[in-house]
Structure formats: C-alpha cells, structure tokens
C-alpha cells in the first residue's frame, strides 16, 4: 500500500476560530478519497492546506513524499487543483485559459496544444474554445475549470466540490470524467456535501464537521448510518404517547416537539404507514406528513455517538 498523502494532527486557527481541529488521515495511491461534510465543515480549508494555498497553524502534511508547505512548489508540479468556484478568466477564451495554465506550468508549446485540444474535446467544450468564457454556462465554466486542472497531468488531483451548483447533466458529465481519471490510476481527493456523489465515486470517505473527522470508512458503511438517520415528520391534531410510537417497528429514535413528531428510521416508508395507522386507531388526525433524508449534521452527530459508544 503506497500512501500519497499523510496528514497528522492538522490544525488551522483564524484568531479564536478553529476551522480545522486536529485532522489526521492518510490517502492511498489510486483511490478516490472523499471529504464529506456540510458547508463550513472545514473541507475547503483542509484542501487549501493540503495544496499549500494556506499554511497550517500546526500539524504536518506530506504529499507524494514531500513536505507541505516547505516544498509546496515541487509538490504543485505533480498535483492538479480544482478550487471550489469555477474560477476561470471570463475575459479570456477557453483556449486562452488553457494556454495560460500550460504556460504557467512550463509545458512545451506543442504539448499545450495537444493536451488542451484533447481535454477540451473530452469536456465537450471544444466547439466553444474561441469564445470568451463569460459566454459559457455555469456547467461549461466548470468543465473548462476541470480541463485546466488536468493540463498538468498531475498524479494527485484535489477537486473541491466539483459538481456543486450544477445541473444534473453537467454533474453527470463531471462525475464521468472523474471516474475516467481514477481509472487511469490517478489519486483523487474529492470534497463534497453530497452523500450520493461520495457513494458513487469514492472508495473511502472521511466525514468531517466543525473541523473534526467523525469517521473514515467506506461509503457503504457510512450509508448505513445515513439510512438510520432518515426520518418521518408528522403533524398531528392531538398528541400520541411516545411509548406507542417507539413500539412501532423500525423506529430508531423519536423526537417530539409539541404536536410535531420526528421518527428516525432506516425504513421511513413503513414507519409513516405505522404512524398513520396509529393515529387513525386513536381518532387523531394527521395534518401533514413527510419523509426526510439524512442531513450531514445529524449523521455526523450519530457517528460521534457511535464512536463514543465503541470507545
């Protein structure tokens, strides 16, 4: 097992705010490693430190056997970085953006031409290469941004929320390219707040919130935690005793707030049916009902709880 990135006790503080609080992880060559967490969890700050854009307050980072940030420039020749926002130069054409990157990496001119043509075609934006990027749609800008990242042919790629805010078609296009890059043997560090995306793409996922890692596991195992944290929310005309709700099958946890009941369950459909039946049997009206998928915050809390229990 070859490790391409090793992070030890990484901390980043801004005055009295701790954005990253003691993260440790190691990433194997050839894997797609996901950093999953809600907005503001510390994912982008972690990636910025891993790519040397910002310096850690404390802790150590090793990428490709080199020390970050001391050897940042050497590392950057062998990595590709796609920051969170599709930050292309909108006043330049797609081709000029590609040339800019190729030249800044010191690639030979014929390689710049060859590689940019290949990548623009791969991203389905070759026809628009001579148009200013300001005329591109958001999805096209993001694909151009990803193409620029790939100009380096980097061994390790850091992709910060590459599909965030994109339509379904553009998201699928980008996920397809990420899968292809992984198949070519590249190591990919992907940040996302989308569990489905993490499950579809990643071999391992670190769940991060408030600067701390709650768990590092396979998406399949994390999925189970997600499923447990799905919920049913019903509004009733009169209260139902907690005990009767807890007696329903598949109910993991119950939160009651006034006449609103939230039941956590891996099978929210059957719990909803049970709740409706229960209300009906007691002559209580169901005013509204819905099922909700797990939010990352609650999954994170669940993971913390599980970790404490196992400890």
């Amino acid at each position: 097992m070859v490790l391409v990135a090793i992070v030890q006790d990484l901390v980043k503080k801004y005055d009295d705010i701790c954005a990253v609080d003691g993260i440790s992880l190691s990433i194997q060559r050839g894997e797609i490693f996901g950093l999953l967490g809600p907005n503001g969890a510390g994912k982008t700050t972690t990636v910025r430190m891993l790519t040397g854009v910002i310096s850690p307050t404390s802790g150590s980072i090793s990428v490709l056997g080199l020390e970050m940030p001391r050897q940042a420039n050497e590392i950057r020749y062998n990595i590709g970085v796609l920051p969170e926002t599709a930050n292309v130069y909108v006043d330049l054409t797609g081709q000029q953006n590609m040339n800019l990157f190729g030249n800044l990496y010191g690639l030979k001119k014929d390689i710049v031409v060859k590689r940019s043509t290949h990548l623009l075609k791969k991203m389905n934006i070759y026809e628009a290469k001579d148009r200013e990027a300001k005329t591109y749609s958001k999805g096209m800008k993001q694909r151009l941004s990803l193409a620029m990242t790939l100009m380096t042919d980097g061994e390790v790629l850091f992709l910060d929320e590459p599909t965030s805010g994109l339509d379904v078609e553009s998201s699928q296009e980008i996920r397809r390219v990420i899968s292809e890059m992984a198949a070519e043997g590249r190591t990919i560090i992907l940040t996302t707040h989308n569990m489905q995306e993490a499950q579809d793409l990643c071999s391992r996922v670190a769940v991060i919130n408030k600067g701390k890692i709650a768990a590092i596991d396979t998406p399949m195992n994390l999925r189970r935690t997600f499923e447990k944290r799905q919920s049913v929310v019903v509004n009733l005309s009169e209260p139902i005793p907690r005990e009767s709700i807890q007696a329903l099958s598949n109910v993991e946890d119950v939160h009651i707030s006034g006449l609103t009941i939230r039941c956590y369950s891996p099978d929210p459909g059957s719990v909803l049916m049970g709740l409706v039946e229960l209300a009906k049997s007691q002559g209580i009206k169901v005013l509204s009902a819905c099922t909700e998928s797990a939010d990352l915050e609650s999954v994170f809390l669940e993971l913390i709880r599980l970790r404490r229990e196992s400890a």
Partner: peptide, 11 residues
Amino acid sequence: AYTLERLISMP
C-alpha cells in the same frame, strides 16, 4: 473572481 486562489495553487 477567485482566480487568485487558482494562481497561487499552481507552482
């Protein structure tokens, strides 16, 4: 425009 972050993430 976040292009500065892009520049400084390069060598």
